[in-house]
Design a protein around this nucleic acid. Structure first.
Length: 396
DNA sequence: TCTGGGGTCCTAGGACCC
DNA sequence: TCTGGGGTCCTAGGACCC
């Protein structure tokens, strides 16, 4: 594909505003104009009215209520989030095939090949916003720029419900006055590090030893690429402070392995590397991993490997008495068609894989709770509904 | 009432091979 | 008798993003 000869911007970053909360306000008109939080024990998303009070995602529910006494909590319509977000992405696809979805509610678009059909990137961005607003009823902010980094920064600057076009001739004028944490990869820790050196804006960073980092958005050459599969699959569970008894480890790891392995099998994938994460009561966390010769996708194999790794990790830290989170992740993924399993011979994982498949089949017909390993089936009350977990899953 | 759950990427050291 | 340097894979930790 020939690249455009002009340097007109062709990259869009489109980001739905306060997505979950906006959907709730769309579904229930009585919530419009009011501070809304999705969640309960923890705030999963906050409307702009709530954000004005300082309410933010990840915040404990009691804290949010403290900051904003009029806050309305809603449980969340997770299926609707997925459905509406998919509809928005379908609108995007009407403008270009080059759509890279990077989460449930945001995407990059390269409209370089569409300008002869629809007009400039800025015009396309405007039409796209209008269509999403009129056909679906949701506000979406769009950034238009020459690079992905700049487009993303522009969409953040456009929020809420706005649009910012960065003229290639004015990129520095746009970027330099902004705070350093607009840069990709600069979070709270790095921002603090810079602040200690008197660096607060991108302009100041550009005059420092980290000049390259400040100018990175201008030099960004990453292309918009459609598709893309996840490189790892994981699940985690936080449970407050608990003593790591055999019962607890078996129950939690069994349930996590069940989720992870089930997702792998559903997509005919398997992974050679198993990683566990243990967070102690004081929030310090460790990881332990193991890479084996054969890809794993069987629930019991994954459970056993995870259990061994967690026990190793605990043994390395005899000073820690309580744990607050366990996680399992599988990486080094490969495709694992069903037929291939028979070629593996009588190893335990392939035998177990076949057993798991009958469990999967029952669940497909009768639902998730219909069947499962005993310990996994027992402790199934998480603090976050499964529907919410599924929203965060990446395409395998 | 302490702090959810899904991911990616980067760094650094060590093992191992050529 | 001493020993270079590059490449790859693995492990552990941490920052960051949505």
């Amino acid at each position: 594909m020939a690249r455009p000869t002009t340097n007109a911007p062709t990259i869009l970053h489109a980001d739905l505003d306060a997505f979950y909360a906006s959907v709730e306000q769309l579904l229930d008109p009585s919530l419009r104009g009011r501070p809304v939080a999705v969640g309960g024990g923890i705030v999963l998303a906050a409307s702009y009215e709530a954000k004005r009070y300082g309410v933010a995602g990840g915040m404990a529910g009691w804290r949010a209520r403290q900051m904003c006494p009029d806050l309305v909590f809603v449980g969340g319509h997770f299926r609707e989030y997925q459905r509406l977000a998919d509809e928005v992405m379908a609108v995007f696809a009407d403008f270009t095939p080059d759509v890279q979805r990077i989460s449930i509610d945001e995407a990059f678009l390269d409209v370089g090949g569409s300008v002869h059909l629809f007009g400039s990137a800025a015009l396309i961005a405007g039409r796209l916003r209008t269509r999403v607003r009129e056909e679906i009823g949701l506000p979406v902010s769009v950034g238009v720029a020459r690079t992905k980094s700049l487009a993303k920064i522009a969409s953040q600057a456009a929020k809420p419900d706005g649009m910012v076009v960065v003229d290639p001739a004015c990129e520095r004028e746009f970027l330099f006055p902004l705070p350093v944490d607009v840069l990709w990869g600069v979070g709270p820790v790095t921002r603090r590090k810079f602040a200690e050196r008197g660096i607060h804006t991108v302009a100041q960073l550009a005059e420092s030893p980290w000049r390259e980092q400040a100018l990175a958005p201008l030099a960004d050459e990453r292309r918009v690429r459609a598709g893309g599969r996840a490189g790892s699959v994981g699940a985690q569970s936080a449970f407050g402070r608990q003593f790591p008894t055999d019962e607890l480890l078996a129950a939690v790891l069994g349930r996590l392995a069940d989720r992870v392995a089930g997702r792998l099998r559903a997509k005919h994938r398997a992974g050679r590397t198993v990683t566990v994460r243990v967070r102690f009561a004081g929030m310090r966390a460790i990881t332990r991993s193991h890479t084996g010769p054969n890809p794993v996708a069987a629930t019991l194999t994954l459970t056993e490997t995870a259990l061994t790794l967690v026990r190793q990790g605990l043994a390395d830290h005899p000073d820690e008495h309580q744990i607050s989170l366990l996680a399992i992740s599988v990486s080094n993924l490969v495709d694992q068609p069903a037929v291939q399993l028979d070629l593996l011979g009588p190893n335990t994982d392939s035998t177990r894989w076949a057993l798991d498949h009958s469990v999967d089949a029952v669940r497909t017909r009768f639902g998730r709770a219909a069947v499962g390993y005993a310990r996994a089936a027992l402790s199934n009350q998480g603090s976050v509904p499964d529907e919410f977990r599924e929203l965060a899953e990446h395409e395998l």
